[in-house]
Design a protein around this nucleic acid. Structure first.
Ligand SMILES: [Zn+2]
Ligand SMILES: [Zn+2]
Ligand SMILES: [Zn+2]
Ligand SMILES: [Zn+2]
Lengths: 139, 139
DNA sequence: CTCAGAATGATAACGATTCTCATACGCAAG
DNA sequence: CTTGCGTATGAGAATCGTTATCATTCTGAG
């Protein structure tokens, strides 16, 4: 049966720790390239391939969330909540909040059931201008 | 002032018509490359750049819907409904249904208002295995 | 200390999309 | 039916995010 497997989940290498740390101190969705640049600038250079590798691993293990930005780029975020949730993201500055939506979960469930779809997942994201950015200037 | 402008909205060229026709006879989300291949095979070859151009135009004018597949590719669909709606998509065969969710719209609205976000848009997609595909074999 | 296996990262390879720009077309005036 | 011109087309180059290679470096057990 599925035994607990490897007890270590979080990065053990300097590089892995750096990638996670960069995300942790951010609160916004960041791209891989973005993080790579930050680490390089911050004196703890990490190879681009390694950044991608760790982001992918962290995402697979559910440590971080991912979504596709409007331009197709994949962006990553370290969320406070471990539970299933969604996000509202500022399309100007990238700030984002975690939000829950029980009614959305129910709706997705029942729509799927009604149409005979199984093995469901969903993406639900809200994009807009955060209070700060919309105060600054519309566009 | 903003006068009604050009009265023609739909493609006037053979190529434009071909792109739209390909989507119309499909009911599924298709990629640009996909459509390009179909048209080429169907004896009405259209340049790849032109396919992209028309898909982009049709999307801008709201004639077709777009979404990002899991692999990042942008896919397009010609929907029956002209009203705002969402989709449930089979991740195996690409079949999709248009679905509405008033409660989801309300939820998005109110979450945005509560957090001070303006100029909202949202993406809400459900992925799963359609009845046919899930009968065929879980995988 | 030694060695096998895992991790790293410079670089090449990929693949989707966009850009360039010379050519083909569509259409209206003459 | 020609001519002229602005628009559309499309082959191929250019972008750019992401992934694959693979030689080198690191780590940890014995
Ligand atoms: Zn903002
Ligand atoms: Zn959800
Ligand atoms: Zn299916
Ligand atoms: Zn909606």
């Amino acid at each position: 049966m599925a035994e607990p497997a490897s007890p270590r989940r979080l990065p053990t290498t300097r590089q892995g720790a750096a990638v996670l740390a960069a995300l942790r101190s951010s609160g916004t969705f960041r791209s891989a390239q973005d993080i790579h640049a930050e680490l390089r600038a911050g004196g703890a250079p990490v190879g681009l391939a390694t950044v991608y590798r760790h982001l992918q691993l962290l995402a697979e293990h559910g440590v971080i969330d991912t979504l596709q930005a409007a331009d197709g780029q994949t962006v990553y975020r370290h969320c406070r909540s471990d539970d299933h949730h969604h996000h509202i993201v500022c399309r100007r500055c990238g700030t984002s909040e975690e939000i829950e939506g029980p009614e959305v979960e129910r709706w997705a469930e029942s729509a799927a059931r009604r149409l005979g779809y199984t093995d469901i997942t969903h993406t639900v994201e809200i994009f807009g201008l955060c209070a700060t950015c919309s105060a600054a200037g519309g566009h």
